[in-house]
Each structure stands twice: as C-alpha cells, then as structure tokens.
C-alpha cells in the first residue's frame, strides 16, 4: 500500500472541501473494496477522507412514498431493516446474495455503488488494463475472460460491474443523491453507472469531488412478485456469473409492468426497457418470458471463455420471471 494522509471531517461540507483540497484524495467509508485495491496497488490515493462517521446513516421516509437510504447505512442494516424487508424485499435479497456477513456489516450503501470490477487483469498490476491504466490495452479480450461482459462491452474493456445490490436498485428505478461544493444533484440509477466505450477508466458519472449522500427508492417496491436469482460458481460468497432482478406487477395473470435487470453481464446493471415494455398486457407465461429473454440477449457477444453466459442469461431471465410470477 502506498503511504497516504488521513482526515476525518465531521460534516458533509467539510468532507467535500477536504476531498477537493487534497490531490489524489478519495473518500473512505466501509473500505471493503478501496483498501483491497490499495493493498494490490491498483488504487493509490494520496489522501483518504474518512466519512464513516458522518450523519448519513439513517433510513427514512423520503416524502414521496418511498424510502431514503443514507449513503452510510451498512449493507447489513439495509437488508435487515423492517421497512426494506417489507416494502423492498427484492433489495434485501439482492444485498444478502452478495459478499459475507462480515463484509456486509462494514460495506455501506453508497460504497456499494462505487465497487470496482473484479476483472482479474484490473487487479493484476503486472498486466495491461485500460480501466486501470488508460491506453495500456485490454488483457481480458484475448485472455481468460470467463467472468466478463456479454452486453455493452467495447474494444477497450469487457469488465463487468460486480454488485448485487445495484441490480435490484436498477430494477427499482432508484435515484442517487449526490452533493459537492457546486451543490446538490440527483442521478437516475440508469444514468449512474456507464458503459466502458473509449473511457473505461470511468465506472460511473459521479464527479471526483462529489459525495453520495443517499439513495432514494420510489414507492413501487414489487413486494408481491419479485425474484433475485444469482448464478455463481459456489453456493455462497462468490460474485455472480449472471444475476437477474425480476419484478412484476400483475393483475390476475396479466402483466401490467415488468422490470428485468441483469448483473454479471455488463459494465453496469443491464436493463432493456423496450423488451420489458413488450410484456405489458400479456399473460405471465413461460413462452412470453422466453420471448422477452430472447429480446434482451439478442445483441449479446461472447468471448472465448464466456460464451456460456449467453444461454445462461437467457435461461436465468426465464426462471427469474417464472419465479416472480409464481409459475414455479
């Protein structure tokens, strides 16, 4: 780990001031990803601004019928919060599908959004990686790419976003609230993370001097009909090869609204709203779910070692929707 200086501001204005005044400064909260990357010399901040004690640690009503998750609420406290369990069980289940109890006790909701990819080459500083060192090349495209993207990748980067929580937040149409010295801003979840394109070093649209203060959940939580399906190499404590957050609003057997977000397949939680809209008004049947799965996966491109993900994702979508509709 490189040497760095440390500060622990006591309020949000001081924290954004602190991160703006120090060169190469980063916020640290749970630290579960940042410290890991620092130990591997993948990230080398010169200064850490410890925000872990700021008063952003509450879950409250947001005045719009939904809940506001403070950025510093831990993943565990969020997943086990009675109102989250009752109104957003999809979110609870997605969080509990990720990491370990110890990590969930440390990791924060804001930090979860900022997790970096688990691409082996991003972690290995001896290999080229456009995300870690722009312009150096992508080792994964012609390397061992079993865990990599099948949707939305670029010639520069085929990394995936590793979060489970974010897949549920994408399906729920959450909003990310951020602030900086320039003022407050709210970012729709779909616009928070980005595709790699020619600038894979940028995981998201947050500016370096901005801090996440909260995540807003809309009123609609799909508590009746939802599934978080995670497919991984072992039964617990592994990143997703493919995951699906499926949420349905049903009237009888007729679909009013469908949300389908995929994890483990792209640089961001993957949604295809046109495909989702095609389910509206149709009966909840396996055939219709197979059709929508085909639409979502139609543009998928596999690499040498991850071709299997294309069929896997298709089947996972059908199974997740079938579970959400209680067909199986």
């Amino acid at each position: 780990m490189n040497p760095f200086t440390y500060s622990r501001p006591t309020d949000v204005p001081a924290a954004v001031q602190d991160v703006a005044t120090h060169a190469e400064a980063k916020f640290i909260a749970g630290g579960t990803n940042l410290l890991d990357l620092m130990k591997e010399n993948v990230m080398k901040p010169h200064h850490l601004v410890d925000i872990s004690r700021l008063a952003l640690n509450k879950i409250e009503e947001n005045g719009k019928g939904g809940l506001r998750l403070g950025a510093l609420v831990t993943n565990a406290a969020t997943a086990y919060h009675p109102e989250v369990e009752k109104r957003y069980p999809l979110l609870s289940k997605a969080i509990l599908a990720g990491a370990s109890p110890q990590l969930r006790n440390m990791a924060t909701d804001g930090g979860n959004l900022l997790q970096r990819t688990r691409c082996y080459y991003f972690y290995d500083v001896a290999t080229p990686c456009n995300k870690r060192e722009p312009g150096s090349g992508c080792s994964a495209i012609k390397g061992y790419n079993r865990i990599h993207a099948i949707l939305g990748a670029s010639e520069q980067c085929i990394a995936t976003h590793p979060s489970d929580m974010c897949i549920a937040l994408a399906a729920l149409n959450a909003t990310v609230l951020v602030t900086s010295k320039r003022g407050d801003r709210s970012i729709p979840f779909a616009e928070f993370h980005r595709l790699p394109g020619d600038t894979p070093q940028l995981d998201n649209t947050l500016e370096p001097d901005e801090i996440i203060t909260a995540i807003d959940l809309p009123e609609k939580g799909f508590a009746e009909n939802h599934t978080y399906l995670k497919i991984r190499d072992r039964a617990s404590y592994a990143f997703a090869l493919v995951s699906v957050a499926a949420a349905l609003e049903l009237e009888g057997n007729t679909i009013r609204e469908a949300r389908i977000a995929l994890g483990g397949v792209a640089h961001k939680p993957w949604r295809n709203e046109a495909a989702e809209a095609s389910l509206a008004g149709k009966p909840a049947t396996k055939e219709n779910f197979q059709q929508v799965a085909g639409m979502i996966i139609s543009g998928a491109k596999g690499y040498e070692h991850n071709q299997f993900k294309i069929e896997l994702a298709k089947r996972a979508i059908v199974r997740a929707l079938s579970q959400a509709a209680k067909l199986i």
Binding site: T5, Y6, S7, R8, P9, T10, D11, A14, Q17, D18
Partner: peptide
C-alpha cells in the same frame, strides 16, 4: 490546505511521517 479546513476537521491531515 486552508486554516478553515483545519478547524472543521477533528483530525486534520498529518504529514506522512
């Protein structure tokens, strides 16, 4: 770093050593 920031932090940034 300005004095204002120093005052606002309980634990200001320390020199490396």
């Amino acid at each position: 770093m300005s004095n204002t920031v120093q005052e606002k932090t309980t634990l200001a940034a320390q020199p490396l050593a």
